[in-house]
Nucleic acid binder design. Structure first.
Lengths: 93, 93
DNA sequence: TGTATATTTAGATAAGTATCTAAATAATGT
DNA sequence: ACATTATTTAGATACTTATCTAAATATACA
């Protein structure tokens, strides 16, 4: 798990918005791009950052590339946050 | 809660390291600075970012300024992460 | 009040990031 | 093979951020 990549990816509001859009189901790069005012190229850059962080999966379907949430990273993320805020004294083991 | 401030603050590894140090208990700015190779001025900048995000609290004690984790933000953070990864279909209500 | 210590603020610079336009890649249909 | 559509990559530019040095502020103590 690439901790730095995940945190970096989440730092941008557009990328968080992409993740929220993908909650409703997979979307193609083009569909996602339509909901933004940026160029498709800019969005593509954001996709790349999300992919490096393993936050999304891609799958080509014909001419389109379909993006979807990689929910397995959710556990990782939860652990990261827990880890960051858990107070030392409260740790058992 | 300042969502953007929180995510931005967590994006930097030094700041995450500061948070982890504070898990063991409060520390003065100077003590924290000693554990880094940066100048105290640079660290002070990081403290400011963490403070804007409400991730730490400060209290002056004589000449020192004592930093401690603001654990109340933990809930907020957890909610943010949940919110980002929860799949829409699974939402009840 | 003056000096020492702790911390922050200001201003500069270098590195990183977001966005754009234009060009490249890949699949589809004729 | 060629034109069309979807997406990414490359290169440029503007903006933001991390870090530094030097100066400013605040407290403590003599």
């Amino acid at each position: 798990m690439k901790q730095q990549a995940i945190f970096r990816a989440l730092a941008d509001p557009s990328r968080r918005r992409i993740l929220k859009l993908l909650q409703k189901g997979s979307m193609t790069a083009g569909e996602l791009a339509h909901t933004f005012d940026f160029t498709q190229a800019s969005l593509s850059h954001h996709f790349a950052v999300l992919k490096v962080a393993d936050l999304v999966c891609t799958e080509r379907r014909g001419q389109n590339i379909v993006y979807s949430l990689n929910s397995t990273v959710f556990e990782d993320m939860a652990r990261l946050v827990m880890d960051l805020f858990a107070v030392q004294e409260e740790r058992k083991k």
